[in-house]
């Protein structure tokens, strides 16, 4: 391991300048629960590590336009302790809470989960279902991007050299909306998703679904937003027939790999089962809102 330089700048501008000058051989350090493992395993060997936890804009959660802006360095434990976010977006918080153990929760971040670009990242389908966006800072200033546009293939992102995710924005949930995230893992804790599903849906006064977003993780190179799965719910009372269509659309969207956790056939089948269960929880939450 050659890693030599460590910087913990106090502002986003300083962080961007450091990263831009390093010409690609630098890594952002948020919670380090992916990065430090990769360095230890020899999969990453940055000459410069830029720790973002001393940048106040990145360590806070603030209310914005009825929703929330979540700093890129906010840990899972801090998010879970934020009662306001948890009550409006329980699915996002439960997805984040599934990451690792209590110890990992003390450090891991939503932005790190996103930028690590694992196809199985648990928080990403929940964030896509909630239509979250992120603010990215780089040498040419700031830009906004949808969460779904960040990961491009396993381990790769659309961030340019010197770009950094500053914060994530989740809009206001609809008054009669509900979200949920579930994953299938072979164990009960501490495992990597075989399938993960995020669902966010809204009902009207008659209990008819007027809007929905369904996202699948771990069944393709990046998390998917499955329009056909959403269409299966919209215009229905989310009854059994709609749930069958949802499950079929979720399975049809899968393009998974075979590995020791699950075969292609298994993942494809389970995607439908988990989509149905997740939608049932989102529905329950929407009804009680």
């Amino acid at each position: 391991m050659n890693t030599s330089q460590y910087e913990a700048p106090g502002s986003v501008d300083e962080a961007v300048a450091l990263l831009a000058n390093a010409k690609g051989n630098a890594r952002v350090l948020a919670g380090g629960t992916d990065l430090l493992v990769q360095i230890r395993m020899g999969m990453a060997d940055p000459a410069l590590i830029v720790d973002i936890k001393k940048i106040s804009e990145m360590t806070t959660v603030t209310a914005e336009n009825g929703g929330f802006r979540i700093g890129a360095a906010v840990s899972g434990a801090e998010l879970n302790e934020n009662a306001a976010v948890k009550s409006m977006w329980p699915g996002i918080v439960e997805a984040m809470d599934l990451i690792g153990s209590t110890q990992i929760q003390g450090r891991c971040t939503l932005a790190g989960n996103l930028c690590n670009a694992s196809p199985a990242a648990d928080s990403v389908p929940a964030m896509i279902a909630a239509d979250m966006t992120c603010t990215i800072a780089g040498p040419n200033g700031r830009r906004e991007a949808s969460v779904g546009s960040i990961a491009t293939s396993p381990g790769k992102t659309s961030l340019a050299d010197g770009e950094i995710v500053v914060s994530l924005f989740v809009p206001a949930q609809n008054a009669t909306g509900g979200d949920a995230y579930l994953r299938f893992i072979p164990r009960t804790e501490m495992d990597i998703a075989v399938v993960g599903v995020g669902v966010n849906l809204t009902l009207d006064g008659n209990g008819v679904c007027t809007a929905a977003r369904v996202s699948l993780g771990a069944v393709a190179p990046t998390a998917l937003l499955v329009d056909d799965a959403a269409k299966a719910l919209i215009g229905t009372k989310v009854d059994d027939a709609a749930m069958d269509n949802l499950a079929a659309a979720a399975s049809a969207a899968c393009n998974p790999i075979n590995d020791k956790r699950g075969t292609i056939e298994f993942r494809t089948k389970v995607a439908g089962v988990i989509a149905r269960r997740t939608a049932a929880i989102a529905l329950e939450r929407a009804r009680s809102n």
Binding site: Y6, L29, G31, G32, T33, L36, V37, I49, D51, T102, Q103, I104, G106, R107
Partner: peptide
């Protein structure tokens, strides 16, 4: 609570 092996 954290893992000290994952903190610099």
């Amino acid at each position: 609570l954290v893992c000290s092996c994952l903190v610099l």
